[in-house]
Amino acid sequence: MDMPQVVGRDGEATQIILRLESSGSVRDVDVGGSIVRWRIFGSGSPLVLLHGGHGSWLHWVRNVSALSKLHCVLVPDMPGFNDSDDLCSSPQHSDPLAGLVAALHGAIESLIGSETPFDLVGFSFGGLVAARLASGTPTVRRLALIGPAGHGTARRQVTPLVDWRAAQTPATRREALRQNLYSFMLHSRDGDDELALTVHERSCVRARFRSKALSRAGGLEFLLNRVEAPVLLLWGENDVTAHPERVAELLRNGRSHREWCLVSGAGHWVQYESANRVNDLLLSWFKPAG
């Protein structure tokens, strides 16, 4: 397993984030009165990356630079997360994913045009969102789902999460989030990775959209059966949100245009923990035709 970049202090982690952000551009897209903020990197065929629940564009902090060497990488804060607005529609909507997906679809059309084919990756809750988006968008050329939510089968998480919102001080909140990071997101507990913790803290505290119930409710298999594009399913072998081999066979369902793989030694946030391996897999999967 390629080890995560270990950063000793929050200030150094902040500098890494600022350098990455400054290497691209920021675009704010108004969709129905709500602003969706996008970071855009590189040039080439469009590749959209969707982050997980309690997440932000920084879930891809160790992937953007590699992927943008061959692609125009478009990374949003989804509506209700980080720098993007909440949706204007009622949160009591009977289909809460509908507004989220519609906003993303509208923003993508605004950025690249309605007829331009694009590739799509979703992580965790973003995997469920990506499947929903791809199921109704014929311009999605190829799809990759990383540790996707919505499979509706048993998880294997054994360590309960700490309620970081109940913390009384910033220090105790950060410590609670540190515990959750290593019990849920990352498998390796070697070192003290302040970059991962800084990303996790920034993302969690600014997430307003409540994704947990949607992630647990299922529906991913149904959505994928409406996707005609080739699909790559990818997990860290120690992902606590699923029994990956069982879910992979369920979702692949004998379809020749669906592939799956496990990344050894990694947990749920596999594209961070084993960034080099995942970057190589994605670059190969999304290689332009011809």
Rank of each mutant, 00 (worst) to 15 (best):
Gly152Arg: 06
Leu20Gly: 03
Pro46Ile: 02
Arg277Leu: 11
Glu245Arg: 14
His257Glu: 09
Gly42Glu: 12
Gly150Thr: 07
His243Arg: 13
Gly113Tyr: 05
Ala149Pro: 06
Ser110Cys: 13
Arg156Ala: 01
Pro46Gln: 04
His200Gln: 13
Arg252Asn: 12
Asp86Val: 12
Arg62Ile: 03
Ser110Pro: 02
Leu104Asp: 03
His200Ser: 13
Gln179Thr: 10
Ala266Asn: 02
Ala176Arg: 04
Asn82Pro: 04
Arg208Val: 06
Asp83Met: 14
Ala229Pro: 04
Pro96Gly: 08
Leu100Ala: 05
Ala242His: 03
Ser215Lys: 05
Leu104Arg: 02
Trp285Met: 04
Asn279Glu: 07
Ser45Gln: 14
Thr172Gln: 12
Leu251Val: 04
Leu251Glu: 00
Leu67Trp: 08
Ala98Glu: 14
Pro4Arg: 08
Leu181His: 02
Leu100Cys: 07
Gln179Ala: 12
Val270Ala: 05
Ser110Thr: 14
Gly126Glu: 03
Val31Leu: 08
Arg9Trp: 06
Val270Thr: 07
Met185Leu: 15
Leu58His: 00
Leu133Asn: 06
Trp285Ile: 04
Phe184His: 12
Ala154Cys: 09
His93Asp: 15
Gly42Tyr: 08
Met78Ala: 10
Ser84Glu: 09
Gly53Ile: 00
Pro288Glu: 01
Gly33Phe: 12
Ala167Phe: 01
Trp260Ile: 00
Arg19Ala: 15
Ser34Thr: 12
Phe125Glu: 07
Asp2Thr: 13
Leu100Asn: 00
Ser183Cys: 04
Val199Pro: 00
Leu220Met: 06
Ser256Leu: 14
Phe222Pro: 07
Cys88Lys: 15
Gly136Thr: 05
Glu21Met: 15
Met3Phe: 09
Ala102Gly: 09
Ile16Lys: 13
Leu262Asn: 03
Gly136Met: 09
Leu47Met: 08
Lys212His: 15
Asp2Lys: 00
Glu175Val: 02
Pro4Met: 11
His59Val: 03
Glu228Asn: 15
Asn276Thr: 13
Arg27Ser: 15
Pro160Val: 07
Ala131Trp: 01
Thr137His: 07
Glu201Lys: 07
Leu111Asn: 08
